[in-house]
């Protein structure tokens, strides 16, 4: 942590004037937490990917070799597809709910 960064405090962590979303605010909070957690899963997937590709290339995966790993185009493409699959999976209920509503099926639930 740098000198200025250590002086941040909460002012630079929380936005001034953040408005509440309609409905139960806990749902908004929970959705935020799910997205943050999904972000962590995405980071872990890429890290696992680095481990596997380094091992396949005969390099011992260690914190420094993983941090220094620079994915080639094939790896970037595979990671992008994996990331999209992850987001589509986690967010599927949000879109499915919308499709049902837009089709006028919401009232039948």
């Amino acid at each position: 942590m740098s000198t200025a960064a250590s002086k941040l405090g909460t002012r630079l962590r929380v936005q001034k004037g953040r408005r509440t979303v309609p409905g139960d605010p806990r749902i908004d909070t929970l959705l935020n937490m799910v997205m943050s957690l999904t972000s962590e899963v995405a980071v872990l997937r890429d890290r696992v990917d680095a481990h596997e590709r380094l091992a396949a290339a005969g390099v011992v995966p260690a914190p420094d070799t993983v941090d220094a790993y620079d994915p080639d185009d094939a790896a970037l493409k595979a990671r992008a597809a994996q990331r999209q699959r992850l987001i589509a999976k986690v967010c599927r209920p949000l879109v499915a709910e919308g499709s049902a509503e837009a089709a006028g099926a919401a009232e039948t639930h």
Binding site: R79, R83, Q84, I87, A88, V95
Partner: peptide
């Protein structure tokens, strides 16, 4: 490496919202 992954996730999430939601 991990910060790139975190940033790419944000880009992918924004793209998903635009394409699906």
């Amino acid at each position: 490496h991990d910060e790139v992954a975190e940033q790419m996730f944000v880009v992918a999430l924004k793209s998903f919202i635009a394409a699906e939601m």
